[in-house]
Every structure is written in structure tokens, then in C-alpha cells.
Design a protein around this nucleic acid. Sequence first.
DNA 1: ACAGCATCCTGATTGC
DNA 2: TGCAATCAGGATGCTG
Length: 271
Amino acid sequence: MPELPEVQTVVDGLQILKDRFIEDVEVYNDNTVKNPNTKSEFENILKGKKVLDVFRRGKYIVFQLDGEYKLITHLRMTGRLVAKEDVISKYTRVRFVFNDGLKLNFNDVRKFGTMSLLHQDEMFKEKGYFNLGPEPLSQDFNKEYLLSKLASSRAIKTIILDQTKIAGLGNIYADECLFLAGINPQRQGKSLTKDEASLLVDKIKLVLENAIEYGGTTFRDYRNSKGESGKFQECLFVYGRKGQLCLSCHNELLHEKIGGRTSVFCPNCQR
DNA sequence: ACAGCATCCTGATTGC
DNA sequence: TGCAATCAGGATGCTG
């Protein structure tokens, strides 16, 4: 599941696309493209455009193109942007050919991933992108900010998964952060003390930084832009470990559905 | 206004 | 053994 560290790793690998020109575009799955309305429009606008920059915002990958256009991509669960293989698979949804022959495939088993090509002045059309909260690794995300978002009866896990409040956390890192902060994921946001909120901010930053160092987590589907796995799965304390023993206190890890998401936690370490 | 749930989709895993 | 049900989960749209 590509979350912030996985998306960052992909973006790092896609820097090779900078200053290249898009020579050809093929859309194999119409529903992958959200904007513009037709795939011929999508293909025609992209052809001849230069890639000025590739960057990450939350879980989105953004290609800054000349002519003030942005190609905004979301991998969702199984999307992969692969700049290595020249093979069109049954899961290739969109394919780009660059001026020097390099190919970029957007492969996506489950077809949840999306691409939107938008001009600078119509960015509001991509609501999820437009409404993103602060980057968790920036100064804007601090304990004062988090406290201001905790005045809610919703579960703390649901709050930190809300992309309009914090951009980039998904199910894996939400569970990991809450474990390291010693906070039960079911706790109401408003029940957290200032110290707990402060600790949670620190652990969110720590986990994301470490996961980026490790090239992200490959639990099942995630691969980087070269098709390689990440290594942070070796560092997980709770995600995917339901029924196993807590690495800290050796009690059995429990699991609950919170906001429709499987959540694993230690009832002893997380209060 | 907002919380909660269904929906999208396909492969892997689990259960009978 | 084989088939069917369940699970995985990010964002969105609908419902109460």
C-alpha cells in the first residue's frame, strides 16, 4: 500500500524523467484517467510536453510540465510507476514514451489508481489533492497543529488517516505511529493529553523518516520505480502481526476494525 | 455539518 | 480437492 515513504521512494527514482519530453502516450484503461474527459484530449495535451519536475505531495505524485500543466497521479493500493521494464503487461493502464526512447508504465492490478492532467488554474478539480493537510515532515506539522485537530470524538486513528488533516499516512504507518506513541487507536481524539499529542507528532515524523531510509514497506504489492521491494517491513511492530506477540512486552497483539480499516495494536503497551 | 458506511477492483488467502 | 466467501484499503459519494 503506497503511503508517504513509498511514494517518496518512487518519486526519488523518477527524477531521471526531468528535462525529458513526452513523445507518445497510450491509455489502455479509460477509467484510470479522471481529467480531461476524453483519453484523446489527455494524450494530445501531453504529447510534446517537457517534464520540468517530479515531486510528491501527500500520497500524490506530481509531474510538473511546461505550459503550466500538472499530471497528478495516485497509486492507491496496487498502482506502480515503472521506468525500467519495456513490457506492456495485462495490468498496464497508461504508458508514456519519452524522446530518447525511455518508457514509463503505469501498471495497476486493481484499477483504483488515477491520473489527472490539469492546468494550473483548474487544480481545484482534483479535490483530494487540493484539500490536502500539511506535510507531516514539515514544520507546519507540530504539536500545536495536531492538538487543534483533536477536538473530536472520532478515533485517533481515523483522525490521522484523514488526508485533509495530515497528508500521507495510511493504514500501515498509522498503526506503527500509534504503537510507538503508546496510544490505543480507538481512543477519542479529544481524550489525548498534550504530552500524548506531542509524542505522537514525534513518532509520526520518526516512523516516516525511517521508512523512507528503508525504501518503504513492501507488504505485498508495493515496488519502487525500478520494480524493487522496500525493506521497512522488517521493522514493523504491529501492522500485519495480529495474533502474534508484542515485540516489547510479549502480550498477544489484538485487532479491531476502526473506520473500516484493520487495526493491530498491543492492549498492554497502548493505553 | 458531519459521521459512518458502501463502492470501486482483482488476486491471494481462508473456510467448508 | 475444489469452489466460494472473505480480505486487502485510499478516496469518494451517498445516507441518515
